[in-house]
């Protein structure tokens, strides 16, 4: 038995499915692919799937991963990935596989790319720059135990703004650790409110996950 980590992208229709639905989807992909996977013991055996980190509904990604226990020690990870990809939907390509080189707890930041469609790219760029220049942006985060006061300015770093044909692009790191996670959905809505834009105008793509010293852990495209 060995653990293999698989990387996948979420695009098109799979951007709109929750973490739980993604888990169920992948269980079925695994079943269809027929790869030699380990099942939990007990009354209701199921496939043992672990994720690096959940992705909120509404976000695309090029760097998601899950770990699987493979019963055949000689199985070639690349071949397993190919078989899984064939059994998946075109909107959820499984593009790489290998050893599990980092633990979920190693992740401290996620890199996101926001694309804001606008008729006034320069104006919006200025507004976003003004927003980014603020030393403190208090906000409220909903948790299971109620709301928690956070500061978005502290939980985000290394912004980069550019203007491309499809809109204004903001690339930024958001805290994504075991504690102090900042949801990109919440970030978009606070930023949108500050800049007077409809939140749904911004597409969100997770591009990488990073460790405490901001080294990229996930495959770079």
């Amino acid at each position: 038995m060995k653990t293999v980590r698989f990387f996948f992208r979420k695009e098109g229709s799979t951007v709109y499915i929750s973490h739980l639905d993604t888990t169920r989807f992948l269980s079925r992909v695994i079943k269809r692919s027929g790869i030699p996977v380990w099942y939990t013991e007990g009354f209701n055996p199921h496939i043992y799937l672990t994720f690096a980190q959940p992705l909120p509904l509404g976000c695309g990604s090029v760097c998601e991963s899950f770990d699987l226990r493979i019963t055949d020690d000689n199985a070639d990870p690349a071949d397993l990935a190919r078989r899984l990809n064939e059994a998946s939907s075109p909107d959820l390509p499984i593009f790489a596989a290998g050893e599990a080189t980092f633990a979920p707890a190693d992740i401290f930041y996620s890199a996101y790319r926001f694309t804001f469609t606008t008729s006034d790219p320069e104006g919006l760029t200025e507004q976003i720059q003004a927003f980014l220049a603020r030393k403190s942006v208090p906000a409220e985060k909903k948790t299971k135990r109620g709301t928690k006061a956070i500061d978005i300015a502290i939980l985000s770093s290394d912004p980069k703004i550019s203007v491309e044909p499809d809109g204004v692009i903001l690339e930024i790191l958001l805290s994504s650790g075991v504690e102090d996670t900042l949801s990109p959905i919440l970030y978009r809505s606070i930023l949108g409110e500050a800049c007077g834009i409809q939140p749904e105008c911004g597409r969100i793509l997770r591009t990488a996950m990073l460790n405490q010293s901001k080294t990229i852990l996930t495959p770079v495209l």
Binding site: G12, S13, T14, Y16, I17, D21, F25, R28, V29, L57, G58, S88, S89, D91, E200
Partner: peptide, 13 residues
Amino acid sequence: RVQKPARYTGGEF
């Protein structure tokens, strides 16, 4: 903007 957007996306396996 809507609840359960996957109701409307299509693209299922």
